[in-house]
């Protein structure tokens, strides 16, 4: 278990590094080395650390532990072929953690990040739409069943293409420097995790590395199917690079635009689901 978690975490942080590198290259900058995020995390671990006097102490530390716990749970869930609905639940709990991270310190900047994370609830809806569409196709939400379905019927990417777009949007909305990352926008210093410094910041970084890996891995598992470890990793890498391209060429949207685009996407997929449910 622990070996999976640690390697997924390191891979996720490397993916973050690749993300930054690709963005930099697209924008004509040299960019940091790809292990930069890994070094970054380690650097934070060696910093002086305390809990701010103004913070709600239990919550301040609790959210860090919970962030690590939910994404390790999500990874183990994927490895054991558990329920996609449970993955959705863990993803929603990640939102509570964002919210809690922002609220736990007394700072206004992080609180604004937290409030934006509430308002951008629309970023969860595409995932629900995607889960619903997959259920229509496979009749089961267990990842093991979905994989078995794909072994027989071929990748779901083609028949369930709108669901793939929805999940892609979800991953895009959670990635750093993306068009939808309004909750860590620079006008709020670093958004909801402004006040988490030192070890706390490093560990949140690590947890988010794990999160990136888990989300990309889910995409590959659910839409491409079991294709062996090397090919899976390759698919994850390609997916990450496409995401980086999107992030590099789109500006960060305003909160209003971000929410409306996500809502419209969900609406379109919902219409497609109704169409499938009624006519097909």
């Amino acid at each position: 278990m622990i070996e999976y978690l640690l390697s997924a975490m390191i891979l996720g942080l490397l993916l973050h590094g690749i993300h930054r590198k690709v963005i930099a290259r697209v924008q004509g900058r040299p960019g940091p080395p790809i292990w930069q995020e890994l070094l970054h995390t380690l650097k934070f671990l060696f910093k002086e650390t305390w809990i701010p006097k103004t913070a709600s102490q239990g919550l301040y530390v609790g959210v860090v532990a919970l962030a690590l716990a939910i994404w390790s749970a999500a990874l183990i869930l994927l490895l054991t072929g558990g329920s996609l609905l449970l993955l959705f639940a863990l993803y929603l709990i990640h939102k509570i953690i964002e919210h809690g991270t922002g609220l736990s310190s007394g700072s206004q900047y992080s609180k604004f990040g937290a409030i934006r994370s509430v308002i951008s609830a629309a970023s969860e809806l595409p995932l629900l739409a995607s889960v619903a569409l997959l259920y229509l196709f496979t009749g089961s939400l267990m990842i093991s069943d979905i994989e078995a379905y794909q072994v027989i019927n071929g990748p779901l990417l083609i028949p369930a293409f709108p669901a793939a777009i929805a999940l892609y949007m979800v991953i895009l909305s959670k990635i750093h420097y993306g068009p939808f990352s309004i909750i860590e926008a620079k006008e709020l210093v670093s958004g909801y995790w402004t006040e988490h410094f030192g070890v706390w910041r490093g560990l949140l970084n690590a947890a988010f590395g794990l999160k990136t890996f888990v989300l990309l891995y889910t995409f590959v598992m659910v839409f491409i199917g079991p294709i062996g470890l090397p090919l899976t990793l390759l698919a994850i890498l390609i997916l990450m690079i496409t995401l980086s391209f999107v992030c590099a060429v789109t500006p960060m949207l305003s909160p209003y635009d971000s929410v409306s685009i996500q809502t419209v996407t969900t609406g379109l997929i919902a219409i497609y689901i109704i169409y499938l449910g009624v006519f097909a």
């Binding site: 006097k53 103004t54 913070a55 709600s56 102490q57 239990g58 919550l59 301040y60 609790g62 609220l103 736990s104 310190s105 007394g106 700072s107 206004q108």
Partner: peptide, 11 residues
């Protein structure tokens, strides 16, 4: 957490 955390102090 709600039971045992102290509330944060607002800046």
């Amino acid at each position: 957490l709600a039971t045992f955390s102290i509330p944060e102090k607002q800046m």
